[in-house]
Nucleic acid binder design. Structure first.
Lengths: 348, 348
DNA sequence: GCTCCTCCGGCAAGCACTTTCCCGAATCTG
DNA sequence: CAGATTCGGGAAAGTGCTTGCCGGAGGAGC
C-alpha cells in the first residue's frame, strides 16, 4: 500500500505516474513555458503534485537547463550593519527576480575570500557579488583575481562593491567625494582643526575617505598634521583604541574627530566619554555610512549618509540587467548629514 | 586551435580528456574518496583541472549523489542586527562543516515565509533553519507547517529558533526566564513601578518577554497596570511610537520602561529624549538582546544579554550533528546586564 | 608454472530534470 | 473533400557528475 520510498523527496516521474501522463507532460505542466498542455492534463498533474507534496529539484533543473537562478554574495562580516544592510538590498532585488542568494562571510580574512569564491563558483551562480574586499591592488591577491577571471570566462558576472580599481564591473562608492563634501560642510560650520581615525592602510575604503577628508581641509587652508592621523581596525574596537591613541598624542587643539566609518566613530565616542571628554562640547565627532542602528546614539552622529540598501540593489542590477554593455561602473554618492555631534562653532 | 566553447564552464569530461584518462578516474582523482587512484594519473588530472580552471558543478554533483551540502536560513530581516548576528553564527558553523548557506529575508511578512520555504525546499538543503517566525500557533499558519512537514518527510531537518511550541527541533530562547531575571535584578535595584513596551500580540518572543517581566514584578508585589503596557512594532520606530503613546498616557509614577528588545528601547530613548525626558534621571530604560552595535548608546543600556552567534551555531549543530535523537529542544538562557540606563534607586 | 587474489582503470547505468524530435489527430484551406 | 498546417502528447536524448561492476595486470601462494 505504502509505496513511497523511505527517504527522499517525490520526483517528477512519480508525479507523472500518479497523474497518468508522461514525464514530458508533467514537466511542461509544472514549468514548461513555450508549449501549452491540455488543461485537463495540467489539472491532473497539479493535483498529483499537490497530493505528493512535490517540489521540483532545483539542482536537477539546473543541470538540465545548464544554468541556475542563484546569486552568490561575499561580504566581510554579515553581522556588521554596513554589510547586512547591503545584503538586505541584494536580497530584496534578488527576490524580485526569483533568484536565490547564497551568502558567505569572510570574517575579514583575505584568504577566505578566495576560498569562498572558489566554492561558490561550483554553484554556477548567475553572478558573484563581492563587497568589502580589501586588497589594494589586484596584484596583491592574484589568486582571487584569477578565480574571478575564470568565473567570468565561463560566463559568470562578477560585481564588486567599492573596488573601482579592479577589472570588474563595480558599484563605485565615491568615498573621496563624500568625505570631502562632509569636510566642506564642517569647515563651513567653523571647524578648523581635525583629527582622523582611519582603518588599515590596505583597505581602500578607509584610505579614500581619510584622503578625501584631509584633502578638503588642506584645500581650505587647514592641513591636518600627521600626528592627528591614527590608524585602527575598521571596527568598533578599532575606533575605541584609535581614540585612545589619539588622546595619548594630546588632542588639545583638535576641534573635530573624523572616523572613517560610523562604527569606529561609535567606539571612539565610547572611549572619549569614558575618558571624561564631553561630547560635543569638548570635541566634535563625525563618521561615515549613516548606519541605521546607530542613528540613536547621543549626541546624534554627524556622518555621510550612504544608500546602503540601494547599493545592494544596484549590485544585482548591474550584474544581471544587461544594460547596453557600457555602464560597468555605477557611481554612488553619499550626502553629508550634520547632527548634534558637530555643532556650529561661533568664533568671536 | 581555440576549441573551447563560447560559454559555460569546463566539464569533468574535458578534464578527463586533457588528462588522458576516463571520466571515472578524473572524478575519483578530484573527489572520490573510497578508492585510490594511481598517483601519476592523479597528478595528470589535477594538472589538467588547473590549466582548465575547472570547478566541479555542484548542482550536477548534487543530483548524482542525491544530496546537497547546503543549508537554508530564513530570517525576518537580515538588516536587523539581531538576525544578522544569528546569521553570522550559522554561517561560521556552516563554513566549518563545508556547507554553503542560502539566506532568505521575509521582511517580517508571514506569507513570504511560506513562499521562501517552498522555494528553498527545491534546493534540497540538508537543513532549513527558521528564525524569528512569528505565528502564535501552528494552526494559524497551516501552510507553512505543511510545507515544513513535507520537507521533513522527504528527509530534511528543520530547526526553529525561538518557536518552542512548534513540532520541530528548536533552539529555545528562554525569554520568560530572561525577562524575569532582569526584572528581579531591577527590583533589587529599587524599582517598584514599570511600564512595558511590547511587540505585536502574535509575536511569541515579544509576548513571552513581556509576560515574564510582568510576572516577576507582580510576584514581588508590584503588579504592572495594563495602562502601562503598550504595543508597537518590533522595530526601532515601533519603540519610538510606543514611547510616545506611553507618555501620552502619562508616565508620572513610572520609574522604569522595559522594551522587549534593544532596538525598541533605542527608539524609545530617542523619543523620550526628544520629548525632554532626562535619561536615566527621569526614567530608567531596559531592553533585551544586548545588540552589539547598540552597546555604545547613552546611557548604556540595561538589557538581557543573549549569545546571538552561539544561537546560530547551535541551530546548525542541532539539525546536523545527529545527537542521540533526544535533544530536540536546546534551551538558551540570557543573563541580565545592568548598566547606566537603570541606576540604583536609593529610597529614603 | 598455474591458480587465486588484489588493485585499480574504464564502461555504463543511474540521478532528476529539460527539450528536441516524431507522430497521430484535429483544424484549416481552397 | 483532399492536402496542408497546426497542435500537443510521448519517447528519447541529453545535462555533468557519481558509482557499481567488470576485467586485465600484476603479485602471492603452492
Amino acid at each position: 500500500m505504502n509505496t513511497e520510498r523511505a527517504s527522499g523527496a517525490p520526483t517528477l516521474e512519480e508525479v507523472a505516474r500518479v497523474a497518468g501522463v508522461s514525464l514530458a507532460t508533467a514537466s511542461r505542466a509544472l514549468n514548461g513555458s513555450s508549449r501549452k498542455v491540455n488543461p485537463e492534463y495540467r489539472e491532473r498533474v497539479l493535483a498529483a503534485a499537490r497530493t505528493l507534496d512535490y517540489s521540483p529539484n532545483l539542482a536537477a533543473q539546473a543541470v538540465a537547463k545548464g544554468g541556475t537562478s542563484t546569486v552568490a554574495l561575499v561580504v566581510a562580516d554579515i553581522s556588521d550593519p554596513y554589510f547586512s544592510s547591503i545584503a538586505s538590498g541584494v536580497m530584496r532585488a534578488a527576490e524580485e527576480r526569483g533568484l536565490i542568494v547564497t551568502i558567505g562571510s569572510t570574517e575579514r580574512r583575505r584568504a577566505r575570500e578566495t576560498a569562498m569564491v572558489r566554492m561558490f563558483r561550483g554553484q554556477r551562480p548567475r553572478s558573484i557579488i563581492l563587497v568589502g574586499s580589501r586588497w589594494a591592488a589586484l596584484g596583491s591577491d592574484r589568486e582571487l583575481g584569477d578565480e574571478l577571471k575564470a568565473y567570468e570566462k565561463a560566463g559568470g558576472r562578477v560585481t564588486m562593491v567599492s573596488q573601482p580599481q579592479l577589472p570588474f564591473r563595480t558599484i563605485d562608492i565615491r568615498n573621496r567625494e563624500g568625505a570631502a563634501a562632509l569636510a566642506g560642510q564642517l569647515i563651513k560650520h567653523g571647524y578648523r582643526s581635525a583629527a582622523i581615525l582611519t582603518g588599515p592602510g590596505d583597505l581602500n575604503t578607509a584610505r579614500e575617505r581619510a584622503e578625501g577628508f584631509a584633502a578638503a581641509f588642506a584645500e581650505h587652508g587647514h592641513p591636518i598634521d600627521d600626528r592627528w592621523l591614527v590608524t585602527g581596525d575598521f571596527t568598533r574596537d578599532g575606533g575605541f583604541l584609535a581614540a585612545a591613541e589619539l588622546r595619548r598624542r594630546g588632542l588639545g587643539e583638535v576641534e573635530l574627530i573624523f572616523a572613517v566609518n560610523d562604527i569606529m566613530a561609535g567606539g571612539a565616542m565610547a572611549y572619549l566619554r569614558s575618558a571624561g571628554v564631553r561630547l560635543p562640547e569638548d570635541v566634535a565627532v563625525a563618521g561615515f555610512d549613516d548606519i541605521y542602528s546607530l542613528r540613536d546614539i547621543t549626541p546624534a552622529l554627524t556622518t555621510v549618509s550612504l544608500p546602503l540598501e540601494l547599493i545592494g540593489r544596484r549590485a544585482i542590477e548591474c550584474a544581471l540587467d544587461d544594460e547596453q554593455n557600457g555602464d560597468t561602473r555605477v557611481p554612488i554618492y553619499g550626502v553629508p548629514v550634520l547632527r548634534e555631534s558637530s555643532p556650529l562653532i561661533v568664533r568671536a
